[in-house]
Amino acid sequence: MKHSIRYLMIAAIVTSTLGIAGCKKEAPPPPPPAPAPAPKVEAPAPAPAAVSVGTITLGKTIGADKKVTAAMDTFAKSDTIYAAVETTGSGNATIKAKWTFHKSEKTADVSEATETIAATGPAVSAFHVSKPSGWPPGNYQVEIFLGDKSAGMKKFTVQ
């Protein structure tokens, strides 16, 4: 009987010790959190291209698309002269046409016209000049400016 009690006591001690040890056993550490995905760096939307001047064409009539109907560089005294300026790009831009007359080394201002456009894509601006009393025969040119920078020039003759 004494032995039975002793065995029971030992069993109880062993059991409680194991139980305590079992309780003390630390849970395995949780797996490290998955690294946060690197934030996606969105490529910035390409800035719309600024307005730039393309072709400059001279003629004496324009169509509904503001382009000259027949390119030419020699005009008659009574002609209205058009300079169709094709532009690409978007945004506000100031375009100027400066018309001049050239005789030997001398230059005379004929006219200037400026417009500001709010372009949303390809566009055509048709500058024109006319002279009710008739153009003096000789050599002329029209220079196109985008802002304050020259963007192209065309020479023409009046006969």
Partner: peptide, 23 residues
């Protein structure tokens, strides 16, 4: 000599555009 040059004071000019103009 500006006197040698023609008179362009009666020249009319303008511009038309397919783009929206800002006035």
């Amino acid at each position: 000599m500006a006197e040698d040059m023609p008179d362009f004071s009666d020249v009319n000019s303008g511009v038309e555009s397919t783009a929206v103009k800002i006035y």
